[in-house]
Structures are given as C-alpha cells and as structure tokens.
Nucleic acid binder design. Structure first.
Length: 264
DNA sequence: ATGACCTAACTTTTAGGA
C-alpha cells in the first residue's frame, strides 16, 4: 500500500498536477492539505473519475484537508477534526480507516498543522496547542496497537539537517525549540518518521519557497512528514520524496512524499 | 547570467503562507 501526503496549495490551482500524479504514481492513499476551498467546491467528480473515493474537510479560502483512496480500497470510521477541538473552526485534520480485500487495514490521517508565525502572536500558542492535541490523539491511536499513519504538512523542521540554511530559521515558528520538542514528543509516543528512517542523508526537502529563487538554489526545508505507529513501521518498505514535481509548471511549493507499506 | 512569490477574496489591496 502506497500512501502519499501532499500540500497542494489550492486544489483548484493544482488539479491537473494531482490528476497527473494519480495517473503516473497510482498511490493507494493520498492525504491532501491546503485545499483552500469549501467541500462543495472540491473537484470531486474529476478525482472520482480517476478511480478514487474522496473524503474532505474544507473551509473557505484557507486550510482544508482531504483523503483519497484508490478502488477497490475503501474508507470507514471517518473522523473530522481532532478530539478536544470542538471550538476550532480551522479545517486541519481528517482521518479514516483504509481497508480492502487482501490488505490489512491502516488508519490514515491527513494533517495540516498551523504555521505559527509570527511567534509573538496568538498563532504560535495555537500551533503548540494543536501539536499537544495531536500528541494525545496519537497516544490514543497507538494504544490500539494497529497500523496508523499520521501524514501531512507538520510545519515543523525536525532537525538542522532538514534545512538547507538552518540558521535562517532559528527564530521561526517552524524551527523553534518548543516546536521541535513537540514534534519529538510525537515520536516518543512510539511513532517513526518514515522518510528519516529510510534515508539518513541531509538535504531531503519537501518545501521550497516561491520567493528568492529558493527552488533553483535548493534552499528547501523538510516539513511534510509521515509518522508511523509501530505496527505500521513493521510494514515499512520504502519512503521517497517526489522532488521532481517542484520543477513542473505552476507547481505547489510543496512536493508529494510517499511511503510504501507491505500488504500485511 | 542568475531569482526576483503565490493564492483567495466582500479583489485593484490585504491576509496568510513558511
């Protein structure tokens, strides 16, 4: 089972890119972030025509997450929003159990973590509170001792090796010690950073800013992650970053990241 | 020579992104 996470930075702008990726890579599950549209505006018919079932949690203009699952796999037990965020209007979390004949079920979440900048605004404590809510939910899921994949745009640079110029990010919400500690707390709950587990090299990036020639200069950061519960990590075959898509016409500023899990 | 932002919206500027 191949599971991809991709912050598309507007599904309307990136629909041709998504359809091309589905056709070429044929992922079994796709976790999308930053739809930037309401549920009724999601291009559901086009994605279904490509062979995928669709579950969305959208909102007007900002945020928005979705799960796509390729037939004959199907989704059950859909959850929209994290536990404890009933008052949170921001569309940042959707989860489902993905199952199909011949494949052991996997619980998959598509997550769009808050950016958190500027750090002296309420946005930063909101980010840390979201990370703590996610950690609690991750613990609950881990206690079931089943395969879980928490995938998405975490807006956290875990380590200096995950930035081309870490010093430039030292005071940024993506790299502050408290942000990194909150990310490590997820790993402490028993989760594995799949890309890091498969490839120890520096210079694996998933985001390059549109500005200042970041892409041609390879000034990237690694902020899109797939965290695997122990039962999912047991099935980890490979993990990869689809870096070449950053060079496509009118690209997202993020590229897809994919893990392959064995069927059992 | 090179790189010179992108998206949505109550759009002609602003908010948000990272």
């Amino acid at each position: 089972m191949r599971i991809t996470t991709w912050n598309v930075n507007s599904i309307k702008q990136r629909l041709p890119h998504l359809l091309g990726f589905l056709d070429e890579a044929k992922p079994d599950v796709v976790c999308l972030q930053e739809l930037k549209c309401q549920d009724e505006a999601f291009p559901r018919a086009e994605v279904e025509a490509a062979g995928y079932a669709v579950e969305t949690l959208g909102q007007k203009a900002y945020n928005g997450v979705a799960l796509l699952v390729r037939a004959p796999l199907a989704m059950a037990e859909i959850r929209r929003g994290l536990p404890g965020d009933a008052a949170d209007e921001q569309a940042r979390y959707i989860e489902a159990v993905v199952a199909g004949e011949g494949t052991a079920p996997v619980r998959v979440a598509s997550i769009y973590l808050p950016n958190g900048n500027p750090v002296d605004s309420p946005k930063y404590p909101y980010k840390l509170a979201f990370l703590e809510r996610l950690r609690r939910h991750a613990r609950t899921l881990a206690e079931a001792e089943v395969p879980v994949v928490l995938a998405g745009d975490y807006n956290v640079i875990p380590d200096p090796a995950d930035a081309a110029d870490p010093e430039a990010w030292r005071a940024d919400a993506l790299f502050l010690p408290a942000s990194r500690a909150a990310f490590r707390a997820l790993l402490t709950e028993g989760y594995t950073d799949a890309v890091r587990a498969c490839d120890p090299r520096d210079g694996l990036y998933t985001f390059w800013d549109y500005q200042a020639g970041c892409w041609p200069r390879n000034q990237g950061i690694r902020i899109d992650h797939l965290l695997l519960s122990p039962q999912a990590a047991d099935r980890l075959v490979s993990a990869s970053v689809q870096k070449h898509l950053r060079g496509s016409d009118k690209p997202s500023d993020h590229v897809p990241v994919t893990v392959e899990l064995s069927a059992h």
